[in-house]
Design a protein around this nucleic acid. Structure first.
Lengths: 151, 151
DNA sequence: TCCGATTGTATCGGACACAAATAGATCGAC
DNA sequence: GTCGATCTATTTGTGTCCGATACAATCGGA
């Protein structure tokens, strides 16, 4: 079994060989690309993801947000506090189950949706992938996430 | 132009449609998978990436590390201080150019390489991609990173 | 009713990640 | 050679992230 430049040995510790680094670098590069667009909306990237969910579904519990975004409540709690301080969402305990906290859009939060509509298009353009490449990447990343998360 | 479930409208704000989220989730899932392995080595994930470079190349400046990892020196400085406090690296200004700081492995740092050799294999197994899928993913992520970083 | 177990949220500590400001060192135009 | 511009690394401030822990509310059984 010989090795080529394209297929390095399995035990390689070279940074460039590793998918994990390509993933890590791509994720930060995309976030950085979002930054100026989201700055105009007054949002950080994870805050934007929370708003995406709320624009689709008006009332979401912290637990549901965590399940959808794969984030711990210890990450979401301070994030939601900042969104609340920005006047974009409200938080209140559900009357039927006081363990749960319902997150809802304020009017300002709902209004922000229109200004956010151009963001995905701009990012999509910047990514510069063909629809086939985009679909392939999404499929592989989801497979990867599933495999890595379980087992 | 009609839309299907596989090809949503361009202006969609649905979380599940977005490659950016698949990327973000995959990156955090992989990092989480690394955590227990790296805990045994006393490293965090970005620290591990720095060590990968140092195992390949004994003396690297902060600037070179930043270029390779796409990280700002304001991120690397405290990270390198922690590696230095762990006794894995040394930092000292280069005699020929005192603006530059040379980062080098200590003996402990060099020794850690052997214990780290099983990590990429374990992660590769957990990712569960075929060699073709792995190669495709790396290629697409690099293309994405290039496109998003420039322009 | 009362107590333990479960579920869910909040807090705390440590470590990234980046922008902006700062401090030293070097280089270049003159 | 001097002085301003540039380069390198650090510091500071804000915002994620996560593990561990603490706290609050609910539910179940005796």
């Amino acid at each position: 079994m010989d090795r080529t430049a394209a297929e390095p040995a399995e035990g390689s510790l070279l940074l460039d060989d590793q998918l994990c680094f390509a993933l890590y670098a791509a994720s930060r590069a995309v976030t950085a690309r979002y930054r100026p667009l989201l700055d105009e909306l007054g949002l950080t990237y994870p805050q934007y993801l929370v708003m995406l969910l709320l624009w689709d579904q008006d009332s979401v519990s912290v637990r549901e947000l965590g399940a959808a975004l794969q984030l711990e409540s210890s990450t979401l709690s301070p994030l939601l506090k900042r969104l609340e301080a920005s006047g974009l969402v409200t938080r209140e305990r559900r009357p039927d189950d006081e363990r749960s906290v319902a997150v809802r859009l304020t009017e300002d939060g709902a209004r922000l949706r229109d200004r956010a509509r151009s963001v995905p298009v701009a990012i999509g353009d910047a990514m510069g992938l063909t629809p086939e490449q985009d679909a392939t990447a999404k499929q592989l990343l989801r497979l990867l996430t599933t495999n890595v998360s379980e087992g």
